[in-house]
Design a protein around this nucleic acid. Structure first.
Length: 770
DNA sequence: CAGTGAGCGAGCTTCCGCTTGACTT
């Protein structure tokens, strides 16, 4: 018999809270939302005023029936879901789905998971805020209407199975537009002059690095300047010293954790979230999906103690940070270690590293500012009015820097400034080296997963729980790809002042190497340009912010949610209809030139399965010929010769065991086919030039691997095998696979055993997914 | 896991936000 049933969203939270409440309380979790709009169709009755058709989510049926049973027994149901729009809605959906009388419920909220906070929450219950629930329903219905009306437009006008939505389409837009900026960027260059001076009369030799206070547009100007320096004297003109200080960054939110883990540990956002989830479940950190930088009073006092013990009292500075982001809903604390006195934890390497990062960031946020002394030394040149400047920085008190320094996205950041030698006004300096090197302006950087999340957060698009899934969706739809791309060679002019002359050299450097950056694909570009043209409003960077203002009005009870949705939907739906009626099929088609063999046009465009090249017109009586593109090729960059090459596939490269070896491009990349078996080429193999020897090598390698994975084979049926797979042994027959029942040993299975298992296996059709 | 791409047409695809296991064969 349950007296009081408390329902929270997360099972880990339930476990913790149960310890704080006496035995009169049972704490269970809903595992997030329990009901949603049906996936099958729109599930919004537009005619009747946008009535949503909710159903219990397939994976929540069990949870709901258990909660329902317990709720029935309980005298009181305490709805303790998160204090935000979604949390309020979850509470309401629970009341509906569990069919409890709302009078038998109390709504409670707490910001930190401490005994006091929870007991206080129990003392101050309220009822469900139906205005807030309505704001969530508006959000949900708007997203459904946008997603389920826009996506089918893409199926008709671009390619089946594509998707569009309020969040993902804007994320793609950011990447496509950044690429456009990079393409249209005009590189400019100027000569940066640097000098190395020796301060005379010091032992050991004292060196001063300085930079000229201006840059020269041309090599001639730079050369002229260097020649002036040849005969010049250099003198310390002024020495300026300024104190400065640096403050620590606030503790982690989901977005900043993803950014720092990406920069410092090289984790993808998905990996960061996976590891953080493990840390959360093992009780090491607080909740990892949050937009709040707030720390509980308990955490603040713990931090103070730890800092005092480890670093001393003068390193303490207790701070409460305020969340800047407007979209923040602050249902949780910042991400921090549960026990700040634990600097290290047990776990695997990924967990240890992420935990360490979180620990340092949290502790540093409660530490004193670093004190610096910045020094500028201005060096005059006797033959000209320009001057050199040497900048130095000395840490006089390290403060939080003892523990942690936030990294930046800026890849071209200056090298760290160091200490400068002591000089005084009037000192003569000896020139050791003066260089003028041509430097180039940089186009804006491409997004990484983490810098895209940062941008999305700034725009208020997406939530902590959706950043990682959204980034995976836009890659799964093949709108963007994450990859490394080599920089290109670029020449620059290098001028060095010798004794009385200037040495000029042309040197070569690589342009920026792009590591794990997001690039738009052809499909991403075509879809984005189409959506931006026809659905300006949805694709506008401020669309989400605009609707959020209205959701807030609904939450305050100033507006009915169905009215807001009606105002949005009526013109939106007209646009959808007009677009379907008037827009052409979007293929991104580009004419590459004329095929010398047939005299027909060759085009690059998007086909049903991705980018293709085409010889001839689709309107011709003769069917045009098609060929898929290789990885790395794109409609925009492919040239005529490369396109003609693609039609050379499939090609026979030789024979093996008296059977032909055929190389071609498939859905999953280049392969060699041999007796109806496919063998993937490796990254370094080029389908255009691969030899029979290499193809045979690949085949033998694959055969050996298959053999190693084979546990048993049977003379009765050569399509039937017992194999070793990722998840253990299984039975394979032709294209079907079957699991081996528990208690049977794979190695001992006979042919008859296998047949019996296959016979007993549930048929695929009867096994409906979800 | 793969050999297509027009056309015909049925039947399918799709959103965002909250949360984890069950499961992969």
């Amino acid at each position: 018999m349950v007296k009081n049933l408390v329902i929270v969203e997360s099972p880990a939270k339930a476990k913790t809270i149960e310890k704080f409440l006496g035995k009169d309380f049972t704490v269970l979790s809903s595992f997030g939302h329990v009901r949603d709009l049906s996936k099958k169709d729109l599930s919004v009755d537009i005619e009747k005023g946008f009535i949503p058709n909710y159903e219990i989510s397939a994976d929540k049926k069990k949870t709901v029936s258990e909660l329902k049973k317990k709720a029935k027994e309980a005298e009181m149901v305490w709805l303790a879901t998160d204090e935000d729009r979604e949390g309020e809605a979850i509470s309401w959906h629970l009341v509906e789905a569990l069919q409890i009388d709302e009078k038998k419920t109390k709504r409670i909220v707490f910001h930190e998971i401490t005994k006091n906070a929870i007991l206080e929450a129990i003392e101050n219950p309220r009822s469900i805020d139906h205005h807030l629930v309505d704001a969530q329903q508006a959000r949900r219905v708007l997203d459904r209407l946008v997603g389920y009306e826009l996506s089918p437009v893409l199926w008709k006008k671009v390619k089946p199975a594509l998707s569009a939505g309020r969040v993902q389409s804007v994320a793609v837009r950011l990447i496509v537009e950044r690429e456009d900026e990079i393409k249209s960027f005009v590189t400019d260059s100027a000569f940066r002059v640097t000098a190395v001076f020796e301060v005379p009369g010091k032992s050991p030799v004292s060196i001063l690095n300085a930079e000229l206070n201006k840059r020269f547009k041309t090599a001639d100007e730079a050369k002229k300047f260097l020649l002036k320096c040849a005969t010049a004297g250099f003198k310390v003109d002024t020495v300026e010293k300024k104190p400065a200080s640096k403050s620590p960054a606030p503790p982690f939110t989901t977005s900043t954790l993803q950014q720092e883990a990406s920069r410092k540990l090289g984790y993808s956002v998905a990996k960061t979230m996976m590891v953080a989830q493990q840390l959360y479940e093992s009780g090491h950190i607080t909740y990892m999906r949050t937009d709040s930088v707030n720390l509980s009073s308990l955490a603040l006092s713990m931090a103070k103690k730890v800092i005092e013990k480890n670093y001393g009292e003068n390193y303490i500075k207790t701070r409460q940070f305020v969340t800047k982001s407007k979209s923040a809903q602050e249902a949780h604390e910042a991400i921090r270690p549960t026990y700040l006195d634990r600097q290290e934890i047990s776990g695997d390497n990924s967990q240890k590293r992420l935990y360490e990062l979180i620990w340092k960031r949290t502790i540093a946020s409660q530490m004193a500012e670093a004190k610096l002394e910045k020094t500028n030394i201005i060096i005059s040149i006797s033959t000209t009015s320009e001057s050199f400047v040497a900048r130095g920085e000395v840490i006089t008190f390290d403060g939080f820097l003892k523990v942690y320094l936030e990294s930046t996205d800026d890849e071209d950041a200056e090298v760290q400034k160091g200490m400068l030698p002591t000089v005084t006004k009037g000192d003569q300096l000896q020139r050791k080296e003066i260089l003028a090197v041509e430097r180039f302006t940089q186009p804006p950087p491409r997004y990484t997963e983490a810098s895209l999340v940062k941008k999305m957060e700034e725009l208020g698009i997406g939530r902590p729980s959706t950043y990682a899934p959204t980034i995976s969706t836009i890659q799964k739809r093949e709108y963007v790809v994450k990859e490394d791309r080599q920089g290109e060679d670029r020449n620059y002019t290098y001028l060095e002042l010798l004794d009385k002359t200037v040495k000029e050299e042309i040197k070569t450097e690589k342009t920026r190497f792009e590591k794990s950056k997001l690039f738009p694909t052809d499909i991403g570009t075509v879809v984005n340009n189409f959506l931006v043209e026809y659905f300006v409003k949805i694709l506008d960077y401020s669309f989400t912010a605009d609707v959020e203002i209205q959701f807030d009005e609904i939450a305050r009870g100033e507006k009915a949610w169905s009215e807001m949705i009606k105002d949005f939907y009526t013109p939106f739906h007209v646009t959808v209809e007009n677009t379907l009626a008037t827009s052409k099929k979007q293929s991104g088609e580009r004419l590459l030139g004329v095929d010398p063999e047939s005299g027909k046009n060759i085009y690059a465009k998007i086909g049903r399965y991705g980018p293709i090249v085409q010889i001839g017109e689709t309107t011709d009586e003769d069917k045009p010929k098609f060929a898929g593109m290789k990885k790395g090729q794109s409609i925009e960059t492919i040239n005529l010769d490369e396109a003609i090459d693609l039609f050379k596939l499939p090609r026979e490269v030789g024979t093996y065991e008296d059977e032909p070896l055929v190389v071609a491009l498939g859905r999953f990349g280049p392969y060699v086919r041999h007796v109806n078996k496919f063998f993937s080429l490796e990254k370094t193999d080029d389908p255009m030039s691969i030899t029979a020897e290499r193809a045979i090598e690949l085949i033998d390698k694959k055969r050996l691997k298959d053999k190693e994975n084979t546990i048993s084979e049977f003379p009765e049926d050569d399509t039937l095998k017992v194999l070793k797979g990722r998840y253990g042994a299984y039975i394979s027959q032709g294209k079907n696979n079957f699991r081996i029942p528990k208690g049977k040993v794979a190695e001992e299975l006979t042919y008859e055993d296998c047949l019996a298992i296959i016979e007993a296996a549930p048929t695929k059709k009867g096994f409906k997914k979800k």
